[in-house]
Design a protein around this nucleic acid. Structure first.
Lengths: 185, 185
DNA sequence: GTCTATAGACCGATAGAC
DNA sequence: GTCTATCGGTCTATAGAC
């Protein structure tokens, strides 16, 4: 079924995603990527002509994973709080990947920027739909704006993914999601 | 009072901070920084021998601003929600600066890493003290863990700063702080 | 404290053989 | 689809004159 060419391309995208998470788009070179994949720089550029193409493919693949996992949550999980904790956990490494792509966004070429916008818009769309239904089910105040709620949740997910990599002596790790720190009243 | 040397150094740090916010630590060169300041690359390296020294100075200066502004809030503002909104607004551009430094953290040399850890620990410390007092004043549930609450707040502040730069067509901007999207019950 | 000039390494990307 | 070799450019950092 799968041509050898496709396998290689997926391998490259996988390793590239790991490098983006670890160092950001401007923190690694196409040479380093080629070395880690085990091919030459020229072979890498045969599969992805420019670094823009590569980053765009990483973002597009991420978007597919996100949509697939969030669709499952929308179908199988009930309750806003439960959906959010599942949503956060299902993202896994993609939370950090998206956070790094967003951080690098202003420096990315246009093709990559378009893909980053899409993955971010899609994820925010899922969270917004979760919030909209939660409001319908009286789990959220009627005057809560689903898209704003989604924005806040998304910000905390991405921010947590970044902060967790900085070991702060004497402090607790950032809990990925704590939806219960609200006011006592 | 201030020697001309110090003025130049502060100017460099200011422009460097702007570049870090816009492009990240790996998204600009010392040459570009020197050009924007209006001096040669060699002159820049006279003030900051290595890029590590430069980034560390940017982070240290940021830390001073953060501690100064949060100290004022701790002294003059009462109430958890009000303190948080003031804290977020008082950070201003430093929220994005800290977010970018955290995103670049794994690629930074050790001196810069130490400074980034410090500014992050200090800011989390302020937020944690705000949460601790809020718990004492029954503004938070007694079983809320101040340091965890601080971590979640910090994550949302940094995440919001990043997301706001990605224009998502058809969605509302991420509100910097919405502390009222909790459950209806 | 400023500059020009440059070292030495790395960058993204390409040419062309196999 | 892989490779070696390389182009032209940029990177951080330094040497040394003024």
């Amino acid at each position: 079924m799968a041509k050898r060419k496709d396998v290689t391309k997926e391998q490259i995208i996988e390793v590239a995603g790991r490098l983006v998470r670890a160092k950001g788009c401007n923190g690694f070179s196409t040479r380093q990527l080629a070395d880690e994949v085990g091919i030459s720089s020229a072979s890498l550029h045969h599969h992805f002509t420019t670094k823009d193409d590569l980053i765009a493919a990483v973002a597009a693949t991420c978007r597919d994973r996100v949509n697939r996992s969030q669709r499952v949550i929308a179908a199988e999980i009930e309750g806003f709080a439960l959906r959010l904790s599942h949503a956060s956990e299902a993202l896994g490494d993609d939370a950090l990947l998206i956070a790094m792509l967003v951080a690098d966004f202003p420096t990315l070429p246009s093709k990559s920027q378009d893909e980053v916008r899409q993955v971010l818009a899609n994820l925010r769309g899922w969270l917004s739909r979760f919030a909209a239904q939660a409001r319908s089910d009286a789990e959220l105040h009627v005057d809560a704006v689903p898209d704003q709620v989604a924005g806040n949740v998304l910000a905390e997910i991405l921010g947590s993914a970044l902060i967790q990599r900085v070991a702060l002596p004497g402090t607790l790790p950032v809990p990925p999601m704590t939806w219960g720190w609200q006011r006592a009243d």
